[in-house]
């Protein structure tokens, strides 16, 4: 069990998302940086899709009520355990009573904005409609269907067979595969249905100009600031299904990228869709930072997904080998 000590947490329990409930009007939710959560789970010998705690407001403090093996992945937030620094993306052991503190993410070789507290055995909240992810809009799933508060106690699942090696880690995906365009983080995007309904200037601006992540950005959507996007004629669409990554352009002309807590339907025109494999990159982009969109096609998106898959498969294989050697030795 872990106890939340922070007062204004805005942290949520997330797994890799809720699949198959779109037809009930239920979006997917899930970790904004799915690679970081999956990597943390694999480091600990968990199932890739076990639930962890997504932290997006710092400082964030928890107390381990029982001994626990854990890893903090995602943004490097200078974590300390009872004041002693612990490495990011690293398997650590906590004794009962120890306090883990996460501080605001550091500007490092790779800069993120969300950290994942992964626990051996996973956060063991009840499964709701097939997932442990918090569904904020529907107020269910995760811990009591809401963001965590001071005093909340989260149960931890039974970890795999002891002993478990600690004291090793993996490279963050953002360091292994950085993606930049003209000095800014690049996000690969496939044109969507209404792309060609925008003026040539708007289309050129969309692909060539930097976009700023505004403070009105959260798990539902990232509202971007940049050149105004104008359709050649006003567009009014019928409501239709959408997925995280869809870039809608409301009448104001400033795009909104749908993120993990996005609703499953929408009606604003769509200029593009961030490919599934790059949603974690956008999810880690800090508020106030700038990004660029880079055109991608179906084959490119599949290649990017295959890279993500290989990254996680490598972690699974190498950590299993290393853990096996250490547990025997």
């Amino acid at each position: 069990m872990i106890e939340i000590l922070s007062q204004t947490a805005l942290a949520t329990v997330q797994d890799l998302g809720r699949v198959g409930a779109l037809g009930f009007g239920v979006g997917t939710s899930g970790a904004m940086d799915n690679l970081a959560l999956a990597a943390g789970n694999l480091l600990l010998g968990n199932a890739e899709g076990d639930a962890g705690v997504e932290v997006q407001v710092f400082p964030f403090d928890v107390r381990f009520q029982a001994a626990c093996t854990f890893a903090v992945t995602g943004a490097d937030c200078g974590a300390t355990l009872d004041g002693v620094p612990v490495l990011p993306w690293w398997v650590c052991a906590a004794r009962a009573g120890q306090v883990l503190q996460l501080r605001p993410p550091r500007v490092a070789a790779w800069r993120g904005s969300r950290a994942y507290l992964c626990l051996a055995g996973g956060v063991d909240v009840p499964v709701a409609l097939g997932s442990r992810s918090t569904q904020l809009r529907g107020a269910f799933g995760g811990h009591a269907g809401r963001a965590l508060r001071q005093g909340d106690v989260l149960p931890v699942g039974a970890a795999g067979a002891a002993p478990r090696a600690v004291g090793f880690g993996v490279q963050p995906a953002g360091l292994v595969e950085p993606l930049l365009q003209d000095g800014l983080p690049a996000i690969r995007v496939m044109p969507a249905a209404e792309h060609d309904c925008y003026t040539p200037d708007s289309r050129a601006a969309f692909w060539q100009q930097p976009w700023k992540i505004t403070p009105q950005s959260d798990r539902y959507g990232f509202r971007l600031a940049g050149p105004s996007l104008t359709p050649t004629v006003p567009l009014e669409l019928r409501s239709h299904g959408i997925v995280p990554g869809v870039i809608q352009v409301p009448h104001g002309g400033q795009p909104i990228v749908q993120m993990r807590d996005a609703q499953p339907t929408g009606g604003y025109p769509k200029i593009g869709t961030v490919i599934d494999a790059d949603l974690w990159r956008l999810g880690q982009a800090p508020i106030g930072s700038q990004i660029r969109f880079v055109a991608c096609d179906w084959a490119g998106a599949q290649q990017a997904s295959a890279w993500n898959r290989r990254y996680l498969d490598d972690i699974r294989r190498l950590t299993a080998l290393y853990r096996g050697l250490r547990d025997r030795g």
Binding site: M190, A192, R238, H240, G241, I242, V243, V246, T273, Q302
Partner: peptide, 10 residues
């Protein structure tokens, strides 16, 4: 196409 995870028929 809605990215590489979904299609939309209108």
């Amino acid at each position: 196409l809605l990215g590489d995870t979904a299609l939309l028929l209108e």
